[in-house]
Simulated assay, not measured.
Amino acid sequence: MSVTSAEDAVSVERVSKTYGGEQPVVALADVDARFLRGTATAVMGPSGSGKSTLLHCAAGLDRPTSGRVRIGDTELSSMSEKQLTKLRRSRVGFVFQAFNLVGALTVEQNILLPSRLSGRRPDGAWLGEVIERVGLGNRLRHRPAELSGGQQQRVAIARALVTRPEVIFCDEPTGALDTQTAAEVLALLRSVVDEAGQTVIMVTHDPVAASYADRVMVLADGRIVQDMPQPGAERIAEQLALLGRRQPAASRQPAVSRQPVASREG
């Protein structure tokens, strides 16, 4: 069982998530995990292993079927949708593979969007530091269509940073990028941890991307099967290859009796 402490940016305790009706699918099965402040964690695993579901539950984007999720000392299970939306806008940042920028807005307007939605005036000095950090000072009046993929992802990272979130959740942030641009984006995320003391939780399938993290957590069949301090890209690849050769686990079966929720793919 996980024990929440002041060092935890995010903690999940016995979290399960079940999708479906007559034939439910268990995406997560009694997962315990702690994500410490000022660290980067890579979450990996085969397709359907539950890694994105874990990210969404931990970020308050999806509610677990059972168990507890905390961001800092705030438990999410008792919060209304309105309260969760407010929390996500003020305390959490998101970076996704698809960038999710608003095409009609300029770079600067996209970066400031979370502040505008939350009704908070941005800190001018911090905004300037964020823009300098992502290296887009000369692109502020451009629109997303005028930028490269790497530049668009930098805008997304700046948007995630501008509210000074406690934790930044990334779902395959380099999946749509070429190797060199991906390395630049990963170095930027690493600097967010090392220089700003932020917490990054990143779902990725790429061992090289995972090598930028302090810790690698591997899921299979909705459970954590490996939790390693940074093992290096080669060992990560070896562990994933071994996992891919395993016989399908029967660990889902006991959890099928849990109360099913509305159908959704895990």
Results as ranks from 00 to 15, higher is better:
residue 161 L to M: 11
residue 66 S to Q: 09
residue 154 R to F: 01
residue 101 L to M: 07
residue 231 P to R: 05
residue 69 V to N: 02
residue 32 D to P: 11
residue 223 R to L: 14
residue 186 L to M: 15
residue 83 Q to M: 13
residue 91 R to S: 13
residue 47 S to R: 00
residue 19 Y to N: 06
residue 224 I to T: 03
residue 192 V to D: 07
residue 243 L to D: 00
residue 52 S to G: 02
residue 209 A to P: 11
residue 189 L to D: 15
residue 18 T to W: 12
residue 194 D to P: 12
residue 255 A to W: 12
residue 146 E to D: 10
residue 39 T to V: 10
residue 215 R to G: 03
residue 21 G to H: 15
residue 198 Q to K: 07
residue 150 G to D: 01
residue 117 L to N: 07
residue 135 G to H: 03
residue 31 V to W: 01
residue 237 A to Y: 00
residue 63 R to T: 06
residue 104 A to R: 15
residue 261 V to C: 10
residue 76 L to A: 02
residue 124 G to K: 15
residue 39 T to W: 03
residue 72 G to S: 13
residue 124 G to W: 08
residue 22 E to G: 01
residue 260 P to W: 09
residue 264 R to G: 10
residue 158 A to R: 07
residue 224 I to Y: 03
residue 218 V to S: 03
residue 92 V to N: 02
residue 24 P to L: 03
residue 161 L to D: 14
residue 187 A to R: 15
residue 223 R to F: 08
residue 148 S to I: 09
residue 133 R to C: 04
residue 83 Q to Y: 02
residue 100 N to K: 05
residue 89 R to P: 05
residue 204 T to H: 11
residue 252 R to Q: 10
residue 249 A to N: 07
residue 171 D to G: 05
residue 142 H to N: 13
residue 260 P to F: 07
residue 104 A to K: 11
residue 178 D to R: 01
residue 143 R to N: 14
residue 246 R to Q: 02
residue 176 A to E: 14
residue 47 S to N: 00
residue 177 L to S: 04
residue 38 G to H: 07
residue 84 L to M: 10
residue 147 L to G: 10
residue 29 A to D: 08
residue 74 T to N: 04
residue 67 G to A: 03
residue 129 E to M: 04
residue 68 R to L: 05
residue 82 K to G: 01
residue 125 A to M: 14
residue 222 G to S: 00
residue 154 R to T: 03
residue 148 S to E: 13
residue 228 M to C: 10
residue 52 S to N: 01
residue 198 Q to Y: 15
residue 204 T to Y: 15
residue 196 A to D: 12
residue 26 V to H: 00
residue 78 S to K: 09
residue 59 A to T: 08
residue 173 P to M: 05
residue 191 S to E: 15
residue 69 V to I: 04
residue 159 R to W: 04
residue 135 G to T: 03
residue 38 G to S: 06
residue 261 V to D: 15
residue 109 Q to A: 08
residue 42 A to E: 00
residue 231 P to S: 07
residue 68 R to V: 04
residue 162 V to R: 10
residue 5 S to G: 14
residue 134 V to R: 01
residue 202 M to H: 02
residue 264 R to T: 12
residue 124 G to H: 13
residue 47 S to H: 00
residue 193 V to W: 06
residue 109 Q to K: 12
